[in-house]
């Protein structure tokens, strides 16, 4: 397009078509080269200092000057038979220079903007990738930390049962396997029905009952309407584990763990209570690993910090988890 305009302009000024074509060919090709040079430079180096505008303009000025010098030299050598053209060349120096400067500056700034945008998009992509990775890793770690103690103690109990009561040992191996399989099968972000979650929980409770004998008593009440509601997989087991831990280790008598599920508006509300002794237990509870990791997990899943609450009564400690159903159903 630039070619055509320039040829047309020069022809209008009564130069021969040969001169017009040659002139525009040379000046525009060189201008194109200058533009490409700028593009390639920007690709590898984007000025970022506070002087970037000054330096960009200075570089463009230099480049435009260089372009003018080279173009003029070429033209003078190639077209030396026309007096009129020579004087035209002299007179149009300023116009040519400003034109070249303008084109080069526009190309440079466009290139800077373009590469900056690409750069930013890459950074953002990387950031979301890292976040996702670290979130997955964190979830995985949170789950891992909860398991080993339980697993080794259970294996120890089985070891003892083999001598005393082989039949029950066999049963416990089965329960432990079912429990572990259930744990491995599920993804962290997966949602399951409350029914499913509770049956998984029951496997866990059966094993704990073998370990702790008569000291551990459980009671589970689930409102009919809750059974098909969704809950993040494997969420309740650590809550109950925490309740058992504090219930059993806080008191020396029997421990009743009560689990109640009701609907509270659009929230599925699961309440786990365990006996405790406020005089000897540490008042600042819930800062321990158990509950804070559950809270963290709820935050990672729902971006809310208020879903896990605790109530400390005279003799009973309650942990309440709320699962917002509208947020759950939008998840895969």
């Amino acid at each position: 397009m630039l070619f055509n305009t320039q040829i047309y302009l020069l022809s209008n000024l009564n130069f021969s078509s040969q001169i017009s074509i040659l002139d525009s060919l040379i000046s525009n090709t060189l201008l194109l080269l200058a533009g490409l040079l700028v593009l390639n430079m920007i690709k590898y180096y984007i000025p970022t200092t506070t002087y970037q505008y000054v330096s960009v303009i200075a570089a463009c000025l230099v480049l435009a000057g260089l372009w003018l010098f080279i173009t003029n030299s070429f033209l003078k050598i190639l077209i030396n038979n026309s007096q009129a053209y020579s004087s035209f060349l002299e007179n149009s120096l300023i116009i040519r220079f400003s034109f070249a400067f303008l084109v080069i500056t526009i190309v440079t700034i466009a290139a800077i903007l373009w590469y900056n945008w690409i750069d930013r998009r890459k950074t953002e992509q990387r950031k979301t990738d890292t976040e996702k990775l670290s979130r997955d890793a964190e979830l995985y770690k949170l789950r891992q930390q909860l398991q080993p103690h339980f697993l080794f103690n259970s294996l120890n109990s089985i070891n003892a049962l083999i001598a005393i009561n082989p039949k029950q040992a066999r049963k416990m191996v089965q329960q432990l396997s079912d429990f572990l399989r259930g744990t491995l099968k599920k993804e962290e972000s997966q949602m399951v029905t409350l029914d499913e979650e509770v049956s998984h929980l029951n496997l866990y409770l059966e094993i704990e009952k073998v370990r702790f004998g008569n000291r551990l008593v459980t009671e589970i009440n689930i409102a009919e309407e809750c059974k098909q509601k969704l809950i993040p997989a494997l969420l309740l087991q650590p809550v109950v584990e925490n309740a058992i831990k504090f219930g059993l280790y806080d008191t020396t008598g029997d421990t009743l763990i009560k689990i109640e599920c009701v609907m509270e508006g659009n929230n599925l509300c699961v309440e786990v209570s365990n006996p405790h002794d406020p005089t000897t237990s540490i008042p600042v509870r819930g800062t321990g690993f158990g509950l804070s990791s559950i809270n963290r997990r709820l935050y990672l899943l729902f971006a809310r910090n208020d879903l896990l609450t605790t109530e400390s009564g005279e003799e009973v400690f309650k942990t309440i988890v709320r699962i917002p159903q509208e947020a759950v159903s939008s998840k895969p």
């Binding site: 103690n153 120890n156 109990s157 070891n159 003892a160 049962l161 001598a163 005393i164 073998v210 370990r211 702790f212 004998g213 059993l248 020396t252």
Partner: peptide
């Protein structure tokens, strides 16, 4: 040990040391 089964395991293993005598078992 607070677990009955864990205690009984220790007792069982102790049978091979007749010079050891369990004088008490405690749950806490």
């Amino acid at each position: 040990d607070d677990e009955f089964l864990a205690r009984s395991l220790v007792k069982e293993y102790m049978k091979s040391f007749p010079q050891l005598e369990v004088v008490a078992e405690c749950g806490d």
